[in-house]
Design a protein around this nucleic acid. Structure first.
Lengths: 185, 185
DNA sequence: GTCTATATTAAGATAGAC
DNA sequence: GTCTATCTTAATATAGAC
């Protein structure tokens, strides 16, 4: 058994919640310690690189979630439209029905390390590629597919920002409901 | 003469740049001091409430800019389409051609005070109302106008996030170019 | 009004016991 | 592996001279 008290995934889940809520600078090791139940030295034992290593591990977990719950449903043999609906369900889960901020948005402020920037950029490109591919498979031209994919991600990110600022998640749900029409011909 | 060294507006301009780049927690008084050329005690003399009072003053300046350069052009006697184009120009300036983050997005993280939240919420509602009104004047029904206004702001906010994450401002410019069609009948 | 100097608190990080 | 205790630095904030 590697760790006695709490699992790595539990630590990363709590850390994700903190980072997407308070941002990188707004999340202290004391807060991470309180949320996870591990004292600071224990966090350093697991993540010797400190906060930066924790946030990179969190982002790796985000990649895993997207791969499993957003990208993989786009690769089945169902109709393109059904596949988009399945991916939308994964997004709805990840964003807590629109109540949770996008961690890539929140962490993209300057001040993060180049490795964080690189991780965020990789997530966005993978997402864009996955949406472009499903749009292309549904019959759109490569150029059209790219634009639709961009529009979809722009709308999702924007709806999360506006939902947060207005305290009203209806915009997020409306964008999510429009995804099938936006991403398929 | 109220202030000897730098004007209030110069201070607030530098502060806006810092806050929208590094966020509230990521912007220290030392950084504000370095950027403005005023030592910390001088900043406290002008803004006794410290960082929170500075950010509230910054947001008041944002309100002024939007009122003058985005909302006012929407109230002229030109055609609705021309008015939207004029407002888009103000937005393009404010967001530095897509290179600058939206300060309302960046500051909307938890950890800010209720007064900051309130200010951000007020800006968003005023923006939504202004866009709704121009869409309605162009001949759309109130319900349609509201949805178009929401879509416009969602797209703008989202395009700024995605532009920042991908290091490519083309999405922002595409959204801006689509505003006249989106907001008028 | 602005400064130098400093007080106070909390941050990130580590040593060493268990 | 996790802890208590502590180090170092940087944060917010203020006192008081000019």
């Amino acid at each position: 058994m590697a760790h006695a008290k709490v699992s790595r995934n539990e630590v990363l889940d709590h850390a994700l919640d903190l980072f997407r809520t308070f941002g990188y600078e707004g999340t202290s090791l004391s807060a991470l310690s309180a949320a996870t139940g591990l004292e600071k030295p224990s966090l350093y034992f697991r993540f010797p690189g400190g906060k930066e290593e924790i946030v990179l591990a969190v982002l790796a977990g985000v990649v895993d979630f997207f791969t499993e719950s957003v990208f993989r449903p786009l690769l089945t043999s169902d109709s393109p439209r059904s596949r988009v609906i399945a991916a939308a369900k994964g997004l709805r889960t990840f964003y807590g029905d629109g109540a949770k901020s996008c961690v890539t948005d929140v962490l993209s402020l300057a001040g993060g390390s180049p490795r964080i920037e690189e991780a965020l950029n990789g997530i966005m490109r993978a997402w864009l590629d996955a949406f472009t591919e499903i749009a292309r498979e549904s019959g759109l031209t490569p150029g059209q597919a790219r634009l639709r994919a961009q529009d979809a991600i722009v709308s999702l990110e924007g709806s999360l920002v506006v939902s947060r600022l207005l305290g009203d998640t209806r915009m997020f749900h409306r964008v999510l409901a429009g995804l099938p029409d936006l991403l398929t011909k």
